[in-house]
Amino acid sequence: MNAITPMIEARDLRMVYNQGTDPVLALDNVNLDVNEHEFVSLVGPSGCGKTTLLKLVSGLASPSAGHLNVDGKRVSGPQKKIGFVFQVPALMKWRTIQQNVLLPAEILGMRKAEALERAQELIELVGLKGFEKRYPHELSGGMQQRVGIARALIHDPSILLLDEPFSALDIMTRGQLNLELLRIWSERRKTSLLITHSISEAVFLSDRVVVFSARPAKVLEVVQIPLPRPRVPEMRVSREFIDLVDHVGRLIGLEFV
């Protein structure tokens, strides 16, 4: 856990899916280091292998070749030090918001009183105070995603993996949740890996943006985002921000005029 070892360390990572007739090469020689407390975004064309990379990091899938260390240890199976936020809220509709947030605590056998206290804290952190006893269907899509974030944090993971958590939301809710995520990140400082299709979201939130090629995913470039923190919405119209967005956009083949 010393400062030199990165939190996530991927070396020549390769992933081949062997389902069906012809195998699919999803990741090809991916090298990536993510430091502790860092916020890193992954962008790249659809289907290039971003989700695959998150699955490998979380231990839900194992690489076909290469090395993957998390927190200095080789990943050999599912890891509890990871919190996963999915593209869909994936809430249990039969549980209240509070019970949904508590689910990982129950499965991991955390002490009840302690878990309840943490859940309450997190529900407040994501701005859902007063909704503890509501059911998911009574919440908007954005509120449900926030429940997903609170749930991912309940067992105090050291890494937060976010797979397009805001892609189903309208642009205003999305901007708002970007700010929330920044706030949560600055309070908790979880090492975060975010997949997004929004380049400006990636630039706005991250310390670095990793740009992937089309499948099989290779790292095209890792773009440093030197914008100061704390980040504020006004930055999104600064020259520097726009240039960064433009640069990343060009890398994945988008032309901004």
């Binding site: 839900l60 599912p78 509890k80 996963f84 869909v88 994936a90 249990m92 499965i107």
Partner: peptide, 23 residues
């Protein structure tokens, strides 16, 4: 995604059945 969550938390078969499948 819920099953992925269960797996990432190393939920037992028993937990998956009663907490995820039955409800």
């Amino acid at each position: 995604e819920l099953l992925d969550l269960a797996r990432s938390l190393e939920a037992t078969r028993w937990q998956i059945f009663w907490k995820f499948r039955v409800p």
